[in-house]
Design a protein around this nucleic acid. Structure first.
Length: 625
DNA sequence: GTATTACCC
DNA sequence: GGTAGGGTAATAC
């Protein structure tokens, strides 16, 4: 019998013997593991409010995934991301070391004030979101599902019923993982035609409240109810209550809604009292900024898992942290888009609501996942079948295009794309397939689990291509009145397959990444210390082999102006350049090297030119919430 | 124009 | 054993 462990060998003692550094390392490793498990759990985890102990759920998911190729791919991606974050951190430290922090902060505040000036509280925007839409429709199809934990879709869940969500099942989750979390879960097939029909019913109701309804997908949409409120002398809450009641009466489906001055806030609000609830944001600057302050950045549409982790690496978890870290974030503008972050912090975003236009479609594609294929003939046959399906879609949707992109996913889950453009618009398998085959043959041999073809650089075939002769003749094709009664915005004569509501939906959709698209308005800001191309999410190519070899070829690249400084530039030379770069733009004006630069600055159109007292007031005002 | 990545539902 | 498919946009070269 082994001796009893002596008191000095117990765990407590072992921990005692750890140095502070050891403890910190253990804590960091655990945090990293949790972070990785969170990312494994899927994109929708963390977006919606977590209900139970998500950490435990994440652990079960990680356990179930372990060892699979998918898991290994996630490990690889996680490693890359971790390196990227470390790169950002090093970059930040390097830049901050030589920066004049008070100047950076005042510049950041100047930009915040500029962004604040764009706030518009005049429009009442509503985001409508059907509750577990596909699942709710499935219950109507098969009432025995009512009250049960079930998921819609095979392989991957497109929707989980609320009962299944209690166990941690989420949309986008692998079916077998859902089964681990909830062993009694039931799976149902998708019935797209039913969702389309239900969506159409919902849309008909919503259109009565705003004829410019913007559908973001089959189950959600944005409205601007300002005119309706005025015309009917109703409050926003009254309008939305009535609208939701009307939707439920007509479809027996419940809907949640958010009311706010812009689309981003409305979308966040629609989640607040889900399911079957509504939430109205007060149309008051201080209330909005207070709301944003504690909001995790991940909640903002367009901020996904990767951005979340990158920002987390810079100490930013909530929108409030954006202000706290404004100096670091400004210096990292090129990779994080400082103005976009400002908009998130201030709760400012687009409030335009307009249906998407048909001619705005960018691509049509078909892709399929299957069990690993290695046989060349199998692969090319699959490609043929995909091309035929694509032809049907193009015919149905009435598009042709010039760029063929073949996409495949290796058995390791790595994605690849190969593209080729041709001189004329094509739309048939006869034209597309040879190009796709040519692109794919060059890749053989491969072991793949997915294959797809996408056609882009589109031409809308429903726009009559009338030549100079036909210019004055009225177009022959009219939009059927039945599809979109009273859509006065549509000036282009187009024809829509009245039965194809999926297409309609897509057409009405608009860019979801509201806060990230803030590029347009600062091109004339000569005074800005920022590179002109702001508003860019972090590219992964900023580190790693390619960039390193470039550094060898081109010399170091200035992180401020992004220019290569030429081979042989020393670190000192680089630092001098960066210093100049920062100074040039008056961030480091206080170094007082150049009175001329100071003068130029004061003469500029900057909001900050009035000096310290005004700035101080502005800062207080910005912080106030 | 091509390839990759992030993001959304 | 097993992790979708339809898209959009941005970036670098």
């Amino acid at each position: 019998m082994p001796p009893l462990p002596s008191p000095t060998e117990d765990k407590g003692k072992a921990i005692q013997e750890m140095t502070e550094d050891d403890k910190a390392a253990v804590a960091a490793a655990e945090a990293r593991q949790r972070s990785f498990e969170r990312s494994l759990a899927g994109p929708s985890v963390g977006k919606a409010g977590l209900m139970r102990d998500q950490t435990d759920i994440n652990r079960i998911i990680a356990e179930a995934s372990k060892g699979s190729k998918y898991y290994l791919n996630q490990v690889r991606k996680d490693k890359e991301l971790t390196e990227k974050i470390e790169w950002y951190q090093a970059k930040r430290d390097e830049l901050m070391k030589m920066a004049n922090i008070p100047k950076l902060e005042s510049e950041a505040e100047r930009i915040l004030i500029e962004v604040e000036a764009t706030r518009d509280l005049s429009q009442t925007i509503v985001h409508c979101d059907m509750d577990a839409f596909y699942a709710a429709v499935e219950v109507q199809r098969d009432p025995t599902l009512k009250g049960k934990a079930f998921g819609v879709g095979r392989g991957v869940l497109t929707t989980a019923s609320y009962e299944a969500r209690k166990y941690g099942c989420r949309s986008g989750m692998a079916g077998f993982i859902a089964k681990k979390l909830c062993p009694h879960i039931i799976f149902t097939e998708m019935h797209f035609d039913l969702y389309i029909a239900a969506s159409k019913s919902v849309r008909e109701v919503l259109l009565q409240y705003d004829e410019n309804l913007m559908m973001a997908s089959l189950d959600e949409g944005y409205l601007n109810i300002t005119p309706y409120m005025n015309a009917n002398d109703m409050t926003a809450a009254e309008v939305v209550s009535q609208m939701r009641a009307e939707v439920e009466a007509k479809t027996q489906l419940t809907m949640s809604a958010g009311i706010a001055p812009n689309r981003m806030l409305a979308k966040i609000c629609s989640d607040k009292n889900k399911p079957n609830g509504q939430y109205e944001m007060e149309f008051e600057r201080t209330v909005i900024t207070k709301f944003m302050r504690d909001l995790p950045v991940r909640k903002i549409p367009g901020f996904g898992r990767v951005t979340e982790r990158c920002l987390e690496g810079l100490g930013v978890e909530t929108c409030g942290d954006i202000f706290t870290h404004r100096a670091e974030l400004l210096v990292m503008d090129h990779w994080f888009g400082f103005r976009g972050l400002c908009k998130a912090y201030l709760g400012i975003a687009d409030n335009n609501v307009a249906p998407g236009k048909r001619e705005e479609r960018k691509s049509v594609g078909v892709e399929r996942t299957f069990r690993d294929k290695t046989d060349d003939e199998d692969i090319l046959n699959e490609l043929t079948s995909i091309a035929e399906e694509l032809e049907k879609d193009l015919e149905r949707l009435q598009y042709s295009g010039k760029t063929v992109t073949v996409k495949y996913k290796l058995h390791t889950y790595e994605n690849k794309t190969r593209a080729k453009s041709v001189g004329k618009y094509i739309s048939t398998s006869k034209d597309i397939l040879p190009i796709a085959l040519e692109l794919m043959k060059r890749e053989l041999p491969v072991r793949i689990r997915l294959l797809g073809i996408r056609l882009s650089t589109l031409k809308d075939l429903t726009i009559a291509d009338r030549g100079i002769k036909g210019f004055f003749t009225s177009p022959s094709k009219k939009r059927p009145a039945s599809t979109e009664a009273g859509n006065s915005r549509s000036t282009t004569p187009i024809i829509i397959d009245a039965d194809d509501d999926t297409e309609l939906m897509r057409m009405e959709r608009e860019d979801e990444a509201e806060v990230m698209d803030m590029t347009a308005d600062d091109s004339d800001n000569v005074d800005s210390p920022l590179p002109s191309d702001i508003g860019t999410p972090p590219p992964t190519s900023m580190f790693g082999k390619r960039k390193l070899s470039e550094t060898h070829l081109l010399g170091p690249v200035c992180p401020i102006c992004n220019k290569a400084l030429g081979p042989g530039t020393s670190n000192i030379g680089l630092n001098e350049h960066i210093d100049w770069c920062l100074n040039r733009d008056a961030i480091s004006e206080a170094s007082k090297k150049s009175p001329a630069a100071k003068k130029a600055r004061t003469d500029g159109k900057s909001t900050a030119k009035k000096g310290r007292d005004v700035k101080g007031t502005m800062l207080d005002w910005l912080k106030k919430s």
